[in-house]
């Protein structure tokens, strides 16, 4: 059944048992919404230099958006910023592929569990759900690092 390509077991697992959910201390906080469906996320990032020490989040939304946030937390926490950006860009590329990218081993190495979202990319209405937390993370990271820059300049 086609549905199974979207609702992979790994996605449903993350949805039912989300990683790192709940808001904790952070350097920046953003609130992103998907106005077409009402999905919302509040996300905080915490950096230790250029290492991501935490991504915490709270939100409401469909299984795809919630599972995506959980996968993001699992993948990015503990990573160096440059590596995290590469993961984010790869995920974005996959989600914008309209189902045309069949992830290869190299992509799987980068994306790990996030590769399960490949099937979602075939459903244009759901791509935004999958990307919600990743766009929020990108935005929060920019704000956190801007803030850090500003602090250094004023120090």
């Amino acid at each position: 059944m086609k549905l199974d390509s979207m609702y992979q077991e790994v996605i449903l697992d993350h949805y039912k048992n989300p990683h790192g959910r709940g808001l904790r201390d952070g350097d920046a906080e953003v609130h992103h919404v998907n106005p077409t469906c009402g999905d919302e996320i509040t996300l905080r990032v915490k950096y230790d230099g250029t290492t991501i020490s935490d991504v915490s989040y709270e939100g409401q939304g469909c299984s795809i958006s919630q599972a995506s946030a959980s996968v993001l937390n699992e993948l990015l926490v503990g990573k160096e910023l440059a590596e995290a950006q590469k993961i984010q860009e790869t995920f974005l590329e996959l989600m914008q592929s309209k189902g045309k990218i069949e992830p290869d081993d190299a992509m799987e190495d980068v994306l790990e569990d996030a590769v399960a979202f490949a099937g979602v990319s075939k459903y244009p209405a759901r791509v935004k759900c999958a990307l919600l937390s990743w766009m929020a993370w990108k935005d929060a990271t920019a704000q956190a690092l801007d803030g850090a820059d500003a602090e250094r300049k004023t120090a």
Partner: peptide, 12 residues
């Protein structure tokens, strides 16, 4: 169950 998921399974 989020409505988005309800709608998706109904659509199928």
């Amino acid at each position: 169950i989020h409505p988005h998921d309800v709608g998706q399974v109904l659509d199928e």
